[in-house]
Simulated scan of single mutants.
Amino acid sequence: MTTAPGRSPARTLITVAPTGAETAKADVPTLPTTPEELVETAVACEAAGAALIHIHVRDSDHRPTLDPVLLKEAVVAVREATDLVVQLSTGGAVTDPLEQRLTVLDADPDSCSLTCGTTNFGDDVFLNPWGFMVDLYRQAQECEVVPEFELFELGHVHALRRLIDECGLPYGDKVHVDFVMGVPGAMPGTPQTLLAALALLPAEVTSWSATGIGRTHLPIAAAALSAGGHLRVGMEDNLVFAKGQPVTHNKELVSRAAELATIMQRPPMSTEEARELLGVKERRAR
């Protein structure tokens, strides 16, 4: 790990996941699904303390899509409007075919998600077989894109160990993981589970964050900060700010995460600090 045992990083990487692929625009009209809404969200969340944005793209009917033109347009638009690290989801929707998910890196993001195994996902199955994981990892190395290894299960931690052994380190030689916790059917969003997962991490891991889905959002944020981790928040993962109070903008979740991190004396990282933490290649026009 990048910090000595028992010490936390001085600052906190805050990732915002503003949209996702599961929530319908008709059900949540404030969900940012258009290009204009995505850029406005990115600008506001950067100002609130986010340093990385995890993007799912929607089409003109607000449906999840992996259309290569729309992916590229999203990357370019957010990169032009902000200094955020731009990360594309390679998970898409759970129904997206594996071969289409392997085309995401053609959009030239700074980073991409790489889920380390198949998992139950509510009533569905999120498919990530071993061969697909290896193909995506090697493609990310070739494209000089930094993967974020998403871990939904304790077994995914072991799969990460296997990936590193077979494929080597990612581009930039940093290994950043995100624990996605509280998905129905996957590992529970509890501090005890988070600590168990941390104990299994390979020595090559240089940084980690945690995501609590739904009502596990705040407990996991508090546990992650206490254990020296970073945070992912956003309407992809949580639509309720407090009991009876829906989230109306992703910046609300980012601002609260930034406040929590600051109280813990680990204020939000700048985008430049995040790029150094993750080993991101410079793709911005200068």
Rank of each mutant, 00 (worst) to 15 (best):
G185M: 12
A196K: 14
T190N: 01
S207L: 03
T190M: 01
F179Y: 10
H217A: 09
G229R: 04
V205L: 04
G189I: 11
K243S: 14
K243M: 13
G234W: 10
H176Q: 09
S207Y: 01
G189M: 11
M181W: 07
S209H: 00
K243I: 12
M181C: 11
L201D: 02
P219Y: 04
M235I: 14
L198R: 07
R215Y: 05
L225K: 04
F179E: 04
P219H: 03
A221M: 14
V233M: 01
M187R: 12
V180W: 03
G185R: 13
T206H: 04
M187V: 15
P188R: 14
S226K: 12
D178S: 13
L194F: 04
T216E: 06
Q192E: 15
I220R: 02
S207E: 03
L195F: 12
L194Y: 05
D237H: 06
A242M: 10
M235W: 11
V205G: 00
E236S: 08
A199E: 15
I213L: 13
S207M: 04
A197L: 06
A224D: 05
E204K: 12
P219S: 05
V183T: 13
V233H: 06
L200H: 00
L225F: 08
I220K: 03
L231C: 06
G189K: 06
V180C: 12
S207D: 04
A223Y: 06
R232T: 15
L195R: 15
L198T: 03
S209I: 10
L200N: 04
L195P: 00
L218E: 11
N238P: 15
E236L: 12
A224L: 09
L198F: 09
L198W: 08
L218D: 08
G182K: 07
T211A: 03
V240E: 10
A210C: 10
K243Q: 14
G212K: 06
E204C: 01
T211K: 04
T211S: 09
I220G: 01
A242G: 11
T216A: 15
G229H: 06
V183K: 05
G229T: 03
A222M: 14
P188G: 11
H230R: 06
S209P: 00
S207I: 07
A186L: 10
A221E: 09
H176E: 03
M187G: 00
A197D: 03
T216D: 09
L201W: 05
I220L: 05
G189P: 11
P219L: 05
R232H: 11
E236N: 08
G182E: 07
H230N: 15
W208Q: 02
L231W: 02
G229W: 02
A224H: 07
S209F: 01
P184F: 11
W208R: 02
T206I: 09
N238Q: 10
L239T: 14
T190I: 09
R215C: 02
A203G: 01
G185Q: 07
M187Y: 10
